[in-house]
Design a protein around this nucleic acid. Sequence first.
DNA 1: ATCCTCATGTAACCCGTTACATGATTAA
DNA 2: TTAATCATGTAACGGGTTACATGAGGAT
Lengths: 188, 188
Amino acid sequence: VSEIAPPAASLSPTARVILGMVARGVRSGYEIKQLVDKSTRHFWAASYGQIYPELRRLETEGLISGRSDPSGARAKTVYELTPEGEAALEAWLLSDAGLLYELRDEAMLKLFFSDAEPGTALRTVRAMRELHERKHEQLQLLEAGAGHMSTGPALALQIGLGITGWLIDWCKATEERLAAETEMQGEA
Amino acid sequence: VSEIAPPAASLSPTARVILGMVARGVRSGYEIKQLVDKSTRHFWAASYGQIYPELRRLETEGLISGRSDPSGARAKTVYELTPEGEAALEAWLLSDAGLLYELRDEAMLKLFFSDAEPGTALRTVRAMRELHERKHEQLQLLEAGAGHMSTGPALALQIGLGITGWLIDWCKATEERLAAETEMQGEA
DNA sequence: ATCCTCATGTAACCCGTTACATGATTAA
DNA sequence: TTAATCATGTAACGGGTTACATGAGGAT
């Protein structure tokens, strides 16, 4: 690589996953996508439409370097961190800049407006429980599937299990309460 | 209004908040933004750049109707739901289509990769706790500030308090564990 | 006078998903 | 031979934020 792009300012959102994954030895775009879908999807997603262009950008900026590693006639490019890439990853991990946190939860929004339409609250809480039960099961599979797990992924998984677990419990309790209230009104 | 736009398919994400808010009697773009920031921000945000254009679109589609209501020379447009708008809101509330759920949590991502850099896990968990403690406090203020609260908003608030509360507890426990482990390694 | 809040709006970006296109390899 | 998986990529679109512009009204 002879052309190196500007200062690189700070890492774009997707660059953060990619650098981290490459550092862990996940080497191709395809593999990164697999791993993301399996392990970080529930709190940090990424699509091919982001991954491949970003790999290019990171190489242009000199943070990763790729080389061709075909299987027969099937092309594959594998990447590794350059020293600059390692430094950038380290800088991000050590920085105490505000941590991005974004949630968009349609179930909660429906719940918020549920007064407008009788029955909506109860139905929404049920749907919400089912959604998080599915999520919870997937995380449990992940936990069971992976034999030993390094600390980082284990911590992230714990949080996922904890949150979904809490939500499921809350939904159950709330369903009972709402169902009871509905009956009361039926009697009155 | 004489021109009504196409079928309207289904409501855009931002349209969902707007219809809900207008139904609750929140009437101008400015007011909607205020209310969103105060009450739904932590699970569903909206910016002026979305709100004003969307109000136009919804009026074009015949779901809301606005009229001018200036204070002196200061312009203001207030909206209310049309019958079609009420129907659209109701349809959304009653629909059991998959509920969108999106989370992007940089703290969890850092945690996931924290093995690469010693000390990162502990520092990240601390930062995470502080973030959710702030969030928790804001929600408590909201709870205290609002006298009576209708069911919907109360339920959403409970979830917010519950989740942040759970996360804070988890962070505290994990901080202790990680700190203990760090000391152990210092001794070994 | 000055500053904050009320009030509306837009243009330039950023980020991201979806859907598609392409083709090799492997398993049924 | 057919389908699934491996592997890379892009174009079109959707949705959203930020920053800016504008100006009236009320409070200090």
